[in-house]
């Protein structure tokens, strides 16, 4: 149990890290010219943009080894996602479930599906229509961190909410 709570604490730290550590190419350009208060549409400063969702709201939640239960930190992130999705009803999302490389390919595929579904169910419980939320499991096929230590594993055990476009096209 001690190990588990440590892992959970580490997971919480990583949630914060993940929010500030995204690929710069995904920022949507834009920066620099806007004065205080001006918002470049589509940039991370535009609260209606996918970039804002990804970076400020937080597009991912992390899980303990073998687990698909949502930590309090994960629930906070998902609450933010739900609020955003409710405020931006044109968007639909695919929730990608992932696992670390420990475990067989088959088990990890099933585990990734559990994680994606846990995130989806939480968003639905906060009022997001299920029809807007797809899930897919990648198991251990798409790690974002490639070292073979817990530091990387903790970031790979994730469910990522990917905005896949607007329902209005």
């Amino acid at each position: 149990m001690n190990v588990l709570s440590k892992v959970l604490a580490l997971g919480a730290l990583s949630v914060i890290a993940a929010c500030t550590n995204n690929d710069p190419s995904a920022l949507g350009g834009g920066g620099g010219n806007g004065g205080i208060g001006s918002i470049v549409p589509g940039s991370p400063s535009d609260p209606r943009s996918p970039a804002y969702f990804q970076q400020t709201v937080g597009d991912r939640v992390l899980f303990a080894v073998d687990q698909s239960t949502l930590s309090p930190e994960a629930q906070t992130v998902l609450q933010g996602q739900a609020d955003w999705l409710l405020a931006n009803p044109d968007f639909v999302a695919t929730i990608e479930g992932h696992a670390d490389e420990q475990g067989t390919r088959e088990y990890n595929l099933a585990l990734g599906a559990r994680r994606a579904n846990a995130a989806r169910e939480y968003l639905i419980s906060r009022g997001v229509a299920g029809s807007r939320l797809n899930t897919v499991s990648y198991g251990k096929e798409r790690p974002i961190e490639i070292c073979s230590t817990e530091e990387c594993y903790s970031k790979n055990r994730r469910a990522v909410t990917v905005l896949t476009g607007s329902t209005l096209g």
């Binding site: 595929l109 099933a110 599906a113 559990r114 989806r120 899930t135």
Partner: peptide, 25 residues
């Protein structure tokens, strides 16, 4: 649904596989 981990039956006429539905496999 998602499906994976298929394998043939010995007579080759059917498969057994994993189906993921609502997060459960």
């Amino acid at each position: 649904t998602m499906s994976f981990s298929p394998r043939f039956s010995p007579d080759g006429r059917s498969i057994v596989y994993s189906l993921i539905q609502g997060g459960n496999t």
